[in-house]
Amino acid sequence: MATAGLTHNYFELFNLPADYDLDLTELSTRYRTLQATVHPDKFANATDLERRLSMQQSALINEAYQTLKNPLLRARYMLQLKGVDLSVESSVSMDSGFLMQQIRLREELEQVRSQKNPEAKLLVVAKEIEQAIAEQVVVLTGLFKEGNEKKLPQIADYVRRMQFMVKLQQETEALEEELIS
């Protein structure tokens, strides 16, 4: 038998259906219940062996929770479970509409610093990015629901788009940090 927990995928760990449309409140409730079972604080008084296992399990549950909670990481993880690894993908083809949007958002982001009210402008860009990600989540939810192997390339396409958006989002956050400090 393999080491505890490792035999389960993250969904099985929380005993939740492997569905992209995940009940996040239920996930966090179950997360807290699991941590209450395995967290190192519950084993402070236990043997070295139990403490080591507890730390490993607790770390695994944290990782699983962080992955499932986040729409991009969850999508990538679900693809990975189906044998699609986006990190080794090389050829990326994007439709022109999406590319244009990317270019425009990037340009706007670059111009933020020179604006009269950079924080307000940044907020506008950040809102648009947030909106775009929310829409991608909706599309992905639909695609995953169809549960069709043939849809996998299309799902992978959308996940890549989301990656671009999340990257942009991280850049807006870095810029925000620059502006507040």
Partner: peptide, 11 residues
């Protein structure tokens, strides 16, 4: 195995 079981039974 025991820890694994405690996780399963918690869920």
């Amino acid at each position: 195995r025991r820890m694994n079981e405690s996780i399963s039974s918690a869920m």
